[in-house]
Design a protein around this nucleic acid. Structure first.
Lengths: 349, 349
DNA sequence: TGTTGGCACTCAATTCTACTGAGTGCCAAC
DNA sequence: GTTGGCACTCAGTAGAATTGAGTGCCAACA
């Protein structure tokens, strides 16, 4: 895991001209996907020198690890480090008006449960940016139980439904060994409520070890709820526009390996978490240490609901992705999500 | 939609030798992905003639639309029609013992709610076959309500939770205009139960148009449940091993367009339904009429729970996919699913 | 001292040609 | 009807020649 806290490895500063040249190379390469030559850089606005001068500077930038050359007679392409410098020194801009409008309109019209909204948001993000989007929903592990109910489903089948304080619903089917009467189920349901309301799904619960059908029901229900919850649920991941992966890369092999990673929810979720935890918003190429993603960059914006970290919004593209736009889009969407699912204050605002 | 009911267009029969040659070409091409030449076919077991004879037969098979030639001096590859003949005349075999064992073991150990099981089953299918798997879960539209409950979530927020007879749980968040007391919520909850239990989510419900907080709650809850249900939910789709798409095709373009279709749940679900409805279990190339999937074949096995159609298990691969194995695997898995979620009789068996 | 134009050089990409060989279609003989 | 023989086709490969974008270096210049 290549965390890169600024404090330990101070971002090496480049003089203004080198910085301008690097920026020109990065933007041009992001645009054309081709190696960038000295003359093209020299003709850029913010670089006021001749190609010859640019060349000598490029040699220096290459020596310092910001640029590389596919082969001797080719232009330069940015290295991961070059992109890193670029994003670390981005002048913050604003999202284009069209995109702003699309985002606003989307959040004005979208409705439904949080899962549905996140699902659709992931599609929005991918449509806006042309990259694959990745959204991690809030984790339920710290929510507390608001209500538990047993519902009779048929012979020897009972469903436990638990509503959590954050509005999530957990359900478990119980297959019983003995018949349970309607009264038994109601009784157990009431007792479960008293027992579990207020607890959180990751804590242990003391179940009185009495005998009898009702006690049996209670034990089965708590067991099902508390033992299976953290394993299967964990975090919810929504991926939008996975077909964009095929746009981002030229070889089927790369596409395959990136898709392969996207299939592993756990890996993706912890990747996003790692990036956020290390205080960054972008992870480039080999920085994140996931080999199959070494041709990818990931842009992340954390989503905080009422000040509490509650998920993240991410975009996955090639290292030569459009960082400024991706960052702004992710941030805009993350803010909207925070507002939408925040407390009264922000919701009524 | 290219339905192809046998009755209308009787499958053209080929004489034994032609059939053997076609079969040899298909199996060889599935194996090697290369055009198959006459000598390779002639050396096959079930074809006892010389390459020259094979060639003249191939000319006939090409004229009849079963084979095609990439270019003059190449071997033959099967057309969609060639594959169709092949699958329509498959001698039914049995699944390999290893696969049988894997399937059995999987269903012995997997546990959890139906969604979790289907999700994991899709991964299993894709791992077994190396193709992308597609599983459609049972539709809830005809299930009836078993229980409705309102849960207070905080200021002016109430959650409606409905449990359906098939064990599905629907939830809707209500944002209220006025405060509702705990008693109000409980009252409304009780009345809702009386009102809704037994109805199915796709039928209209008469709500008495009284005034007051409780009546308001009831109206909001029924509105949320019944109006938004069919739109968002529909059917559940589980896709496993989408990275396999990148294994199946050579060009990034094909991969992109196939992935693009897989993102459209509605298209995929109705494709599977169409295939099943027309009484087939395989759809090849352009048969299904979805242009971006014209390089694909889809193998489907319906899942019936207690005799009622309740979803489907599908495999998506290139037209040169291993039909026998794919069919057997899909069928085996479909049977296991039916058994797992079937009524008492089959479950206790 | 830093900048610049000039110039020889490099090397991927492109084009062209020649060649190879897998596989065909046709036909005369069996 | 089947077969071996044979001329033919044409994608694919390899090699040679060409092109040109872009470099590194250097001498001249401000």
């Amino acid at each position: 895991m290549a965390r890169r806290p600024e404090s330990q490895e101070p971002a090496q500063e480049l003089d203004a001209r080198k910085a301008a040249i690097l920026e020109a190379v990065v933007t041009e390469h992001i645009d054309t996907a081709q190696p960038v030559g000295s003359s093209s850089v020299a003709s850029s606005e913010r670089v006021g020198v001749s190609p010859a001068t640019v060349r000598s500077e490029m040699v220096a930038l290459e020596r310092e690890g910001f640029l590389s050359q596919p082969h001797t007679s080719a232009g330069r392409i940015p290295t991961d480090r070059g992109y890193r410098y670029f994003v670390d020194h981005l002048r913050s801009g604003t999202l284009g008006p069209t995109q702003q409008h699309t985002v606003r309109e989307f959040f004005d019209t979208v409705h439904g449960e949080i899962e549905d909204v996140l699902e659709q948001t992931s599609t929005l993000l991918s449509r806006l940016t042309q990259y694959t989007s990745v959204i991690v929903g809030p984790s339920h592990t710290h929510a507390t139980v608001r209500s538990v109910q047993l519902v009779d489903l048929g012979p020897r089948r009972v469903l436990v439904v638990a509503v959590l304080s954050d509005g999530a619903v957990e359900k478990r089917t119980l297959d019983l060994d003995h018949d349970a009467s309607v009264a038994d189920v109601a009784d157990a349901s009431a007792q479960l409520n008293g027992l579990l309301v207020g607890t959180s799904l990751d804590q242990r619960v003391e179940v009185p070890s009495r005998a009898g059908v009702v006690a049996e029901l209670i034990r089965a229900a708590t067991g099902a709820l508390f033992d299976e919850a953290p394993i299967l649920d964990g975090d919810q991941l929504f991926i939008g526009g996975s077909s964009r992966v095929a746009d981002a890369f030229e070889t089927v092999d790369t596409v395959r390996s990136v898709l392969g990673i996207l299939e592993q929810e756990l890996v993706v979720v912890s990747l996003l978490r790692d990036i956020i935890d290390s205080g960054l918003s972008v992870s480039i190429g080999s920085e994140h240490g996931i080999e199959p993603l070494s041709a990818c960059a990931v842009v992340v914006a954390p989503v905080s609901i009422d000040g509490v970290p509650a998920g993240a919004v991410g975009l996955l593209g090639p290292t030569r992705m459009n960082y400024p736009e991706a960052l702004l889009t992710a941030q805009a969407v993350s803010e909207q999500l925070a507002q939408r699912f925040g407390g009264e204050d922000s919701r009524r605002a």
